[in-house]
Amino acid sequence: MEMSPFFFMLFSVVAIACSLLMVLKKNPVASALNLVMVFFCFAGIYALLGAHLIAALQILVYTGAVMVLFVFVIMLLNQDVPSFDLAQSHAAVKAVTVTGGVVVLGMLVWVFRTTVWGPPTGGHTQAMIERAGGNTSAISQLMFSEYILPFELTSVLLLAAIIAVVAIAMRKDKLERLSGKGNHT
């Protein structure tokens, strides 16, 4: 693959270290900030792989929107205090999970290492992407032709998610008053 080995190793080592810290940190705010760092490293690797639109979306949507939402909820619930849940977990659960995870990871790496990928069949070669005007342009053309139906369906999904969040997070008495059931109170 055509990418800089130095930057790939840098991003991957930082991402693995920060994700381990995210799992092990006691304070949820520290976990959230480590997760932001992991997302930035992922964006860097997307850019190295030539997926520029995905790299931009990663920073805008994940580090911009999702993580702000997380930090907002942590602050809203006053949860920026150390939580000692990790020390209270069962030792057996921890041992089984870590062992199983490492074994499955080893199997996955072995499979990736030994598989021989055939010649590329997709047809979106570097020359073709450059002729279309870059990665973003090529993806946009694909998005509004072949993938137009799923693209429109994402708007329905987001609308459903908004309604669901409002219904879940609203206080119960307010919800009943709105739906006309709690008028007698």
């Binding site: 693959m1 792989l49 030539g50 997926a51 990928w117 590329p120 069949t121 997709g122 047809g123 979106h124 070669t125 570097q126 992407i129 090529a138 993806i139 694909l142």
Partner: peptide, 8 residues
């Protein structure tokens, strides 16, 4: 996507 040169 990069291995198979397919933007899907």
């Amino acid at each position: 996507s990069s291995i198979h040169e397919d933007l899907g």
